[in-house]
Nucleic acid binder design. Structure first.
Lengths: 148, 148
DNA sequence: AATAATCCCGAGTGTTTTGGTCTGAATTAT
DNA sequence: ATAATTCAGACCAAAACACTCGGGATTATT
């Protein structure tokens, strides 16, 4: 039941972009530093996000990435689906192409997984990047880390 | 966000045993046939379940496996935890040993994953094998394939 | 025009996980 | 004794994972 780093890092990156939404394009290097992600790897990840239409890129010096929509319009689920494909704990209850269960038990197990899938989807689609930014502001000033 | 076949098959096997609870020990071969699972592989899987104390084995001819508790006392979550380890979409929100997030953002992303984890746990722990058996009985006798 | 900062694309790579198979031994009902 | 089982473990191929890297294209700045 693990997410791959793609989804994990992808969300971190999107969150970072959301926190800087409305300013200039953010170079990937900055995102990588702030979020503590391997830069070269992040390049691959952002490419997927771009192809999914979630971010726009600006090439050349002073270039970088910006969200393609407002933070409020991008749901966590959108990011995860882009990075990991349709949400599905098991193939046979995939959001899109539910691979057919071969004969056998008429899959009571399947209904279990469908419920799990739905509960995941509910959470992921109920949270936007905007929500995350808002929550970030309400966070108490973390100990061991001085603000400037 | 995928379950491995271990969890998937493991639950199918446990469900099969639940449906035969209260009779003689069920040989693995039967389970494999009914649930359409690779027999040798299933051997590995059931070994994990046994070590987790979820099934008991009876060796020798006419041997097999039986649930270690009543179907009503075994939750789906117990099976999945046995097969897949602590439930956690990402390490840093693992049910047991939450690996520490390295510095950086004070992980708003993390709170997202915690919510996902909780919603998964809620579902998995709210369903017992007994529930599944009950549901199985209410199911129409299923013809070849209907739907849509 | 030159430079430097960026994005872009795709190939390459070592490690781990997955999803099994198989052999052979131990146990036990018949 | 035989056959049906569980049990332990070795073995394996293929895929996925998590990167790394090289080289090109684009563009702001000087």
């Amino acid at each position: 039941m693990k997410l791959s780093t793609k989804g994990h890092y992808g969300l971190k990156a999107m969150f970072d972009l959301a926190q800087h939404y409305g300013t200039e394009p953010i170079p990937l290097k900055n995102v990588a530093e702030r979020q503590n992600l391997p830069e070269y790897y992040l390049e691959q990840i952002i490419a997927v996000l771009r192809k999914a239409g979630l971010v726009r890129s600006v090439r050349g010096a002073q270039g970088g990435y910006i969200l393609a929509k407002t933070p409020g319009e991008i749901r966590v689920g959108d990011v995860i689906r882009a990075m990991e494909g349709p949400i599905a704990p098991v193939e046979c209850v995939s959001e899109l192409d539910p691979a057919e269960c071969d004969n056998a038990d008429f899959c009571i197990t399947r209904t279990v997984w469908a419920r799990v899938r739905d509960s995941i989807v509910d959470v992921l689609d109920s949270i936007s990047l905007g929500d995350m930014c808002r929550e970030a502001k309400n966070l108490p000033p973390v100990p061991g880390k001085v603000e400037k």
